[in-house]
Design a protein around this nucleic acid. Structure first.
Lengths: 157, 157
DNA sequence: ACTTGTTAGCTATGTTATATAACTATTATG
DNA sequence: CATAATAGTTATATAACATAGCTAACAAGT
């Protein structure tokens, strides 16, 4: 055990937590859980040459061929400007293609390549397996409850 | 409604979601909820001259006088190196003080100033109020369940 | 006491995610 | 046709997070 000042060391000895007050905040506790899940997801996706954002965009494109960058931004709750480099990366990796739309020359119709579809499927499967492990202490009903409760969180009224 | 390619536009018309597959991942859904809470928390804390990380560190210091930077890093699940600038910011804002420890000249005993205590109390109160609003669709039992379920998520086995 | 290993804080650096403003080309609207 | 809105882009900034390496100080074993 590390040397520590008295009061803090005592708190550590008691329950190992110095952040008791913060744990009462849902945002704080959720951030910690999210960080754990995201860090693991990043490591998994790295094996497929993807980051979390590029994987997310790829998944949307696979499920919705001919989607536009603006639609992806809206779906993933990000700024349009930030989609550019993400789509660039997917295109350069040969996972998707930008196709011009005859009826609107401003936008691109994004479509996954065969490799893109395969990569998505494999990555999604790997992610699900890792999540399943990290959620091993929750049964199916508890997982459903967790998702439902998170879905009830709303923007400021 | 924005002009969109056919298939994607249809999906949007149906349920407004292009990310159905991703929503099945707990990590993805939790990230979305977390982002919402964190963005709001950042705005709140900005009013107190704090960021999420500086507020978190301040809260730990207030609750555990004479805590060290390493202990804060461990408590907040961050790297020691990243605590330095955070503690610097709190010190320069006059919210905490670095005090030398006679028994160990390597470490600092961090203590909040009176203003630090006041700032923390006010910020925490404001954060709790904002969370209470964003969680208005969950009753007390549901909030407790949410916290309990998040706490069951574990690192990879 | 002296070497060895560890700890605390610090510095530098890099990446990822996110946000904003401003620009061009194109399309929609009054 | 003039004006407004939209799609994509560029540039830029910041927060959070991570890694490697460094110095000073302490701890432990011989």
């Amino acid at each position: 055990m590390a040397k520590a000042t008295k009061a803090a060391a005592q708190a550590v000895a008691e329950n190992g937590n110095l952040d008791t007050a913060l744990r009462g905040l849902v945002g704080y506790s959720m951030k910690r859980a999210t960080n754990m899940l995201q860090a693991d997801a990043s490591r998994v996706l790295d094996g497929y040459g993807l980051r979390i954002t590029t994987f997310s965009a790829l998944a949307v494109i696979c499920d919705h061929p001919d989607v536009t960058q603006s639609q992806i931004a809206a779906a993933l709750n990000m700024e349009r400007s930030n989609t550019v480099l993400i789509i660039d990366a997917l295109e350069q990796a040969g996972l998707i293609g930008r196709h011009r739309v005859p009826t609107d020359r401003r936008s691109y119709a994004l479509r996954a390549t065969l490799e893109g579809m395969k990569t998505r499927d494999a990555a999604l499967k790997a992610l699900a397996a890792h999540e399943d492990d990290m959620l091993r202490n929750l049964d199916q009903e508890e997982r459903a409850t967790l998702m439902a409760l998170m879905g009830k969180i709303a923007p400021r009224s």
